[in-house]
Computed example of a mutant assay.
Amino acid sequence: MKQKKSIILVASLMSSLVLTGCASNDELIGQQKQHAEQINTLESTVSTLESRVTTLENELQAQKEIDKDIYQEVNKLNTEQGKLKQQAQQQVEQADKFYTIKQDDTLYSISVEFGLTVDELLQLNPKIENPRRLLIGQIINIK
């Protein structure tokens, strides 16, 4: 920043020296004042821009922190979702092992539906005492 000011000041003085032989002192003083005003304006503009850059850098850093937090939460949710999917799959597999007796069901109709024999159903369900008497809502093993 100081180097820019020095360069601008040197350029201003050099241009003033070049004009020394061509212009009066009053003209030179006027030009120097004009150059000084331009330098002040440029310094003010640079200062404003530096302030904006600092603000944007701070906002970017804050956004990076927010993004990091969001990324961590997304990873947690993905992990949790994976666990839930696995649990759901296990429940589906577990549900496939059982059948709930409905009205008009017989061991024969159930065995045909699931590709089993009546004897296989009876082996899977030793609690069935009377194969001809099923209760609606009763849950039996089918695998």
Rank of each mutant, 00 (worst) to 15 (best):
E80G: 14
Q38C: 13
N25Y: 08
E37Q: 10
D96S: 08
I140N: 04
P131M: 04
I8L: 13
E37S: 11
D26I: 03
S111W: 01
E43A: 09
Q86N: 14
G21F: 13
G21L: 10
E37F: 12
L28C: 03
L107Y: 00
I142M: 05
T48N: 12
D105W: 01
I140H: 02
N58Y: 11
Q32I: 09
Q72T: 12
N58F: 09
S12R: 05
Q91R: 14
L135Q: 15
T48K: 08
K33Y: 15
P131I: 04
K64A: 14
N78A: 14
I142V: 09
N130E: 05
E80P: 02
V18H: 11
I110P: 00
E43P: 03
G82N: 13
Y71R: 15
L49W: 07
I70Q: 10
V46I: 15
R133T: 15
A88R: 12
S109R: 02
E129M: 06
Q89H: 13
L42I: 15
L116R: 05
T117N: 00
S111K: 03
I7Y: 05
Q31I: 06
D119V: 07
L116C: 02
Q94I: 05
I128M: 03
Y99D: 00
Q89D: 10
N25V: 09
I139W: 04
L135S: 14
Q32K: 05
E43M: 13
V92C: 01
N40P: 08
K97S: 06
K76L: 13
S12P: 00
V18L: 15
L42V: 15
Q38P: 03
I101L: 00
I101D: 01
L116E: 02
F98V: 09
I101A: 00
K143E: 11
T79R: 14
K68C: 07
F98I: 08
Q90E: 12
S44F: 08
A11L: 09
I142K: 03
M1F: 08
V10L: 14
Q32R: 06
K83Y: 07
L77K: 11
A11N: 10
L19C: 06
E50A: 07
D26Q: 08
V92E: 04
L84Q: 10
E43D: 15
L28I: 09
I128D: 02
Q138P: 03
A36E: 12
P131Y: 01
Q81W: 10
Q38A: 14
L77N: 09
D119Q: 12
R132A: 15
E43T: 09
F98E: 02
L77R: 09
L134C: 05
I39C: 07
L9Q: 13
Q38N: 11
V10F: 15
L135W: 12
I8C: 07
Y108I: 06
S12Q: 02
G82Y: 05
L9C: 10
G82I: 02
T54A: 15
P126C: 06
S111C: 04
Q90H: 08
A36F: 14
V46T: 12
V118S: 02
E37P: 01
D96Q: 10
I139R: 15
